[in-house]
């Protein structure tokens, strides 16, 4: 849930999604769901020479399960807030047990 919220705060920011098939796609994050499926607009594949497959594709839906990394815009991530939220969530899990 925490990570889902982080992604929601990053909508309309430019991110780079690296997939488990080594494709790297940069685009504007349009939406995300609880499975961390991602919609990107205005996409650009890194190394189009090697991966020309998506030259005519402008926006896409990426299945969360095939994502390896997402490079985030560091200036839009409040790391202190993240750490506090992570501790709070970990604490809640302990209480639930």
């Amino acid at each position: 849930m925490l990570i889902f919220s982080v992604f929601k705060t990053l909508t309309d920011q430019t991110v780079t999604v690296e997939l488990k098939n080594d494709l790297c796609i940069t685009g504007v994050l349009k939406s995300v769901d609880q499975f961390l499926n991602i919609r990107l607009d205005n996409i650009k594949v890194s190394d189009e020479g090697r991966h020309p497959h998506m030259m005519a594709v402008k926006n896409c839906f990426i299945r969360g399960s095939v994502v390896r990394y997402v490079q985030l815009p560091a200036d839009h991530v409040d790391t202190q807030l993240l750490e506090d939220a992570t501790r709070r969530e970990a604490q809640n899990q302990i209480k639930q047990r």
């Binding site: 849930m1 925490l2 990570i3 982080v6 488990k20 961390l36 390896r68 985030l72 991530v77 790391t79 993240l82 750490e83 939220a85 992570t86 501790r87 969530e89 899990q93």
Partner: peptide, 29 residues
């Protein structure tokens, strides 16, 4: 949290970075 960690990943990859968030799936930021 907020310390530098070492992460070993599938596909013969490893990372070193400062940990800011994680969840029960071991998703990390």
């Amino acid at each position: 949290l907020s310390e530098r960690v070492f992460v070993k990943l599938r596909g013969d990859r490893q990372l070193s970075g400062i940990l800011h968030a994680y969840d029960g799936h071991m998703n990390l930021i």
